[in-house]
Amino acid sequence: MRIVRDIAIILVLVLAQAFLFNELFFLRFLNPYLYVYVVFSILIRYPRAWQLIMAFAIGGSLDLLEGSAGLHAGATLFIAFIQPIVKGFWSVGQEDPDEEPSLKNMSLDRRLGFLFTAFFLHHFVLFSLEQFGFENFVDLLKQTFFSSLFSFTFVVLYQLWNARR
């Protein structure tokens, strides 16, 4: 039953991303990519191989809807692959490594640090794939930083709202 619910949430988020968030531009170049959040919240409960395949499928379906040809598939797959490493980096010294690997088990500051790093990496891969190279590197970093900050703000709001419930 849980898997049906997960798929429904993923579908809704992908559609919302394609038709709502992609139309939302702040300061003319900031675009929140919130669908990435499912990689950390939902996909993380599934086996590794499925995580990668699902991440590719989510990114790919967004690419089909948006006409961006592989950009989101590549970036989402990358973040799904790299996230245990990022998570390990943020939970150095934590006592219980055997717990279910979910965001709930991280303290709030670590969770936020992890989310920002992950969003930054995802956006960086996304934008460098988009321009297919690293020319204008400073511009690229600037855009990545502000965009991930923007996406991150939304996620923090969601986390706070969730914490109050």
Partner: peptide, 21 residues
């Protein structure tokens, strides 16, 4: 196998991008 799966899928994505970009 995870690494191989990752490399294969990422290669597919990059091929997709390169064929368009």
């Amino acid at each position: 196998r995870i690494l191989i799966l990752f490399l294969a899928l990422e290669g597919l994505a990059i091929y997709w991008i390169a064929s368009v970009q």
